[in-house]
Every structure is written in structure tokens, then in C-alpha cells.
């Protein structure tokens, strides 16, 4: 029982990390039908920014470093849209070009991180290191519980904002009918920029949380989690925000149980097999609906 619970908590905390990054993919897809590949690089870049700040100007202050990192990530997301996506969008060119542009941004960011950070594994600050919480006999590290709680709070706040806040509601409107948003005089470009900023901030939370969980950082964390988060997005149904969250948790819990009861090396094999099977049975993912083409 204790082992089962421990594995479950592992799955849920890892799922939180997948879910946060997955929301970014899904949010932008829901608005632009674009797979924004730069999301995974923002995950990495944010963790590197946190590391750089923490080891220099804001040494020792986790909360302050975290807030500064989130601000930087938000700005980065907005700038990515402004510089690499908006010009293509406004010319009315195909999304394929925007996709390639986002891959370009991803590669550039990864190169910058590699150039400034280096390629070795370095220790990453964590919270309540060595502290464990006894959960019905299961020994779970405090950072895992923090990650789960923080993620739930973020999901709750996001849900509230998209229901009750003007800008949040505006983002939901964009995903329903972009043309009507233009016609209603909504600041469509700014809102799309905001959606990139929101996605990036969530990826930043995810990136910092993951490195805190590992207590280490290396240049490869972005690609590893980015792929999983994207797979989770597709599993849940791309373009549906709750799908990204559910997909993230399902994928991570499956992985965690495979790793716990079978073997670490079977983890990716099983999780991606599950995704392929789901996609064969229901190509739109768990929550996705068939695209209805507007006449």
C-alpha cells in the first residue's frame, strides 16, 4: 500500500509538470491551430534564467528569483510571438511557416542556453531539501507535495480567470472565432501575445519545478519534458485545455507505475504505446472533438 501511494504521488507530481507545459501547447493550438514548438525551449530557458539569477543577483532568495523568472518568461513568450509568429500570421501565410519559425526559435533558445550555461549537470536549488512527509506510510518528499499544491492553485486561478476576467474570456473567444474577435474590436494581436506569455509562464513554473524536483539542471531537461508534455497534449485532445491537464496526469501516472512495478527502461515504451493506441481508437484525443469546418 505504501509503495502504491508513493508511486501514485510520484505520478501526480510529475503529471503536474507535464500538465503545466501541456497547457501552453494546447492554448496556442486552440487559438491559432499552431503547434508552438518553442514551448519546450522556454521550459529550459526559464530554468536556466532561474539558475543564473539564483547564483548571482538574487542569491538565496527562492521566492524573489521565482517571481523574476516568471516575469522574464512572460516577456519572452510575448516577444517570441511578436518577432517570430506575428509577421507570418499577418501576411496570412500557412501555419506550416509559423511552425517552422517556432522550431527556429526553439533551436536558437537551446543554443543560447547551451552557450551560456554549458553542457554539464549542475546542482539546482530546491525547497525543503531532505524533508519528507509521511502520507499513510508513504514517504513523499516535500517538494513533490509543493509542486502538486502549486499546480492545483494555478489551475484553479486560471479557470477562474478564463471564466470571469475580461482578458481571460477574450482568450476563450479567440479560440472560438478569431474573425469575430477582430470584428468586435478586440485587441486580437495583444491577446495572442498574452496567450504566448501565459503559456510561457506555465512552462517556466514547470521547468523550475522539475529542476527543483531533480535538484539538478542540465541542458537536456527541456527536450525530455517537452516531448512528454506535447504527447500529453495530444493524448488529452489538442486545443482543449482540460485535455492537456488530464493527458499530463494520465501519462505521468502510467509512467510512474511502469517504472515502479516493472522497469524504468520500459517507461517510454509503455507510455507512448498507450498514446498510439488512444490515437488509433480516438484520433482527436480523449476530450477532443472532430473539427467542424466552418462554411
Amino acid at each position: 500500500m505504501a509503495k502504491f501511494l508513493q508511486i501514485l504521488v510520484n505520478g501526480i507530481s510529475l503529471g503536474s509538470i507535464y500538465a503545466l507545459t501541456a497547457i501552453g501547447y494546447s492554448l496556442i493550438y486552440s487559438i491559432l491551430q499552431l503547434i508552438n514548438m518553442s514551448n519546450a525551449a522556454v521550459f529550459l530557458t526559464s530554468a536556466v534564467i532561474f539558475y543564473a539569477l539564483y547564483s548571482s543577483i538574487t542569491a538565496g532568495q527562492v521566492a524573489l528569483t521565482f517571481i523574476l523568472t516568471l516575469i522574464a518568461a512572460g516577456a519572452l513568450g510575448y516577444i517570441i510571438e511578436l518577432v517570430a509568429i506575428r509577421p507570418i500570421r499577418e501576411k496570412g501565410d500557412s501555419n506550416t511557416y509559423a511552425l517552422i519559425s517556432s522550431i527556429g526559435v526553439k533551436t536558437i533558445l537551446e543554443q543560447i542556453c547551451q552557450g551560456t550555461f554549458g553542457s554539464e549537470i549542475k546542482p539546482f536549488p530546491t525547497l525543503l531539501a531532505g524533508k519528507y512527509i509521511d502520507l499513510f506510510g508513504a514517504r513523499t518528499s516535500a517538494i513533490q507535495i509543493i509542486i502538486i499544491v502549486v499546480t492545483l492553485v494555478i489551475l484553479f486561478v486560471m479557470n477562474w480567470y478564463t471564466q470571469h476576467n475580461r482578458v481571460g474570456r477574450g482568450l476563450r473567444a479567440l479560440s472560438q472565432n478569431l474573425n469575430a474577435c477582430h470584428l468586435m474590436g478586440m485587441p486580437v494581436n495583444t491577446l495572442i501575445g498574452v496567450s504566448f506569455a501565459v503559456g510561457s509562464i506555465l512552462a517556466a513554473v514547470s521547468g523550475v519545478a522539475y529542476c527543483m524536483y531533480l535538484s539538478s539542471i542540465s541542458i537536456s531537461v527541456g527536450a525530455a519534458i517537452g516531448n512528454k508534455a506535447f504527447a500529453a497534449t495530444v493524448l488529452g485532445g489538442i486545443g482543449v485545455l482540460k485535455g492537456a491537464v488530464v493527458g499530463g496526469y494520465i501519462l505521468a501516472v502510467i509512467e510512474s507505475f511502469v517504472a515502479g512495478y516493472w522497469s524504468m527502461s520500459a517507461m517510454n515504451f509503455v507510455s507512448f504505446s498507450v498514446i498510439i493506441i488512444v490515437l488509433i481508437i480516438k484520433p482527436t484525443g480523449i476530450f477532443g472533438k472532430k473539427e467542424q469546418h466552418k462554411v
Binding site: 474570456r169 473567444a173 472565432n177 474577435c181
Partner: peptide, 23 residues
Amino acid sequence: CPEGRQIFPKFTVEENLLMGAYT
């Protein structure tokens, strides 16, 4: 007011009207 209405189908009537008042 565009051809084919282009309302926001997943919004309530109230939310649609609020979007009209965005400016």
C-alpha cells in the same frame, strides 16, 4: 454584424454580449 452570424457558440448569450462591448 457579419454574414453567418459568427457568434461565440461556447459562450452564453450574456458572454457573447460582453464580447460585443469589449471596446
